[in-house]
Design a protein around this nucleic acid. Structure first.
Lengths: 197, 197, 197, 197
DNA sequence: CATGAATGAGTTTTCATTCAT
DNA sequence: GATGAATGAAAACTCATTCAT
């Protein structure tokens, strides 16, 4: 796992410290209130800094949004890849991926759940960048579903969208206390695999 | 059907004309740009009126948001009720409901799709009101799923959330041209009903 | 003279009152400190209003700049046209124009002298608009100089630029007390007309 | 000529290299965008340095402005002095001075043309310093015009202001391609000397 | 000599809302 | 019912400057 190492190989961190704190503060607030309702001042305050100081680290709010989103993608991609590594049964792979997806979403990192947020209403330039990032994650599921042994009559594209919808919509209703994220992920795959009727 | 009558029974409309135009303009813009990015001035302009004039019809922006949201719920609830009326087979009822749901979402009315929007990031007071409204719609699906003949091992609550997730997530990817909304709705129910593996 | 009438014929005034006060305040401060160093807050304060309120009358600072500049052009154009009206001797016409130019520049209206300011360092879009306006005034002098009976060896374009330079540069050194603006204007034309050596 | 020597006699340069690069970068940007619109960061970037580093060489932006302005005065003063050295006919001396003035303004050095910029709109302290510098240059023309054999009726002060206005105003309209700077300078003196009417 | 990081006051602009007419 | 005009708080962002290292 590389996400705890200095990550020099991605060349995207400068003097990691404050930048990471800023991103953590931003992700936290973006999740609580959304992009629009979170001001640069709010983020600065949460990171113990003045608003103007942030602009040394991120040239604009959009850049900060993109950075947190990309960090979210990096973390969840990693989780899914690690979880499915070395497993060959396609349904088991999909189950493990769904479980890793849910565990990452609700496992304490504030970044990945940003990928479930509504981005259809941000500025066109920002939106297209975020969509790119999200698509690069969705592709992992495309591959997992492609490997499934399914009757020809099943549209694999729609199947993927159905599963991702089930999984991501959880961000709008999940609260700790009931079933665990892992159980929920496992269930959403099981009802596709098993005969219900 | 009640949606064309003056709706006196809800006691909340004054001199319907301008009010309805305002709501239509608002719903249109809310869908395009989201709540935050839509200003009262934008809405007023689209309705051929000045910003100040709106406050005769709606005491605040939140009230306008709630009104459009509630109108969306009213329309989609109606569609689902009408579609399932008189049908008794539980799987068929669920399929018809999903189809009606999708047809209403993408069938030209700008209100219902607002129910798929991310409200987890609005002010707490507004949010709790919107959640109430959405829940009162989700209950329809609760009933439909309760009627399904399912093994005890299947958690009906999660099943409902899975289906609603699949259906509502479509608002983030659906574009006209591929499968029709009705086909998509039918498919999402079918993969629950049929054995895939 | 039309500049004191409601000016309906130019169609550019709304409810003249506050708009004119705003323009007067702006012109005053633009002259004292320049465009950049004058903030919208400064202008608002001088007009007895809050910064945000100005945006009802002018959509942006650039628009306000353009409006004051255009008002300056209107006033000085009028002065020159009125002064030369009915006079036919070309040198006398030029003298009267120079005198009117100087009298308008230093005669209490804060608008016209803006045309002497350095605009080579504003944003390209703003600059090109201001240049258009200034050129439309300079054309008056083009005509006056064209009518002069001069030897072929004299470049009329350069002659115009020389005179306008002499006149406009006065905005950087003129202080009341010495020669009057009218005397200065008359002198600058006389040294072109008379043999000095 | 002293401009190539280390200039110890002015006692104001430290380790000339970086200082000169900084001044060149500043002069370049001041001409393109003006003082206000040029930030210390812009200048630093153009000189390949970070903003903070400049403060070793110049204690403030105003000091940097003054230094470039003074350098512009030094260069153009030199040109005029060299051009008129050894010539005794007063009108020829004035002509040569005007030609040298124009050649220096548009001859590639970015400093001297700063003297033509609008300084009537900078902070009072800065302004008074810049005026001092400019006046010390204008005095050269005062002397040249004093030597002219003119009728008593001609106000020599105004004559100087007229000529300097014609010359300096060129900074607002001159573009390479038409008459050369030298031809323009010669023309502006000729129309004073010769009878036009 | 230079850098990285921060400061704090400032900028233009936007916006929900109010209210006299 | 609607308008014109204003309010005041907040937004994103900029910038000259400072200073420890």
């Amino acid at each position: 796992m590389t996400e705890k190492t200095p990550a020099k190989e991605e060349g995207q961190y400068r003097s990691d410290n404050r930048r990471q704190e800023l991103m953590a503060a931003a992700a936290h607030l973006f999740n609580q209130r959304g992009y629009d309702a979170t001001s640069m001042r709010d983020i600065a305050r949460e990171a113990g800094m003045l608003a103007g100081s942030m602009y040394y680290h991120f040239p604009s709010k959009d850049d900060l949004i993109i950075a947190t989103y990309e960090e979210g993608r990096r973390l969840i991609s990693n989780s899914v890849l690690v979880a499915t590594e070395g497993v060959s049964d396609p349904w088991e792979r999909l189950t493990l991926a769904a479980v890793a997806h849910m565990n990452t979403l609700f496992g304490g990192n504030n970044f990945s759940i940003l990928l479930c947020a509504d981005i259809s209403r941000t500025s066109p330039t920002l939106r297209s960048r975020l969509i790119e990032i999200r698509d690069s994650y969705d592709n992992l599921f495309m591959d997992l579903i492609d490997d499934l042994p399914l009757p020809e009559s099943v549209d694999k594209g729609l199947l993927r969208l159905s599963l991702l919808g089930s999984l991501n919509w959880s961000s709008s209703w999940y609260r700790p206390g009931g079933q665990s994220p892992a159980q929920i992920g496992e269930f959403f795959v099981r009802i596709l695999k098993e005969k219900l009727v």
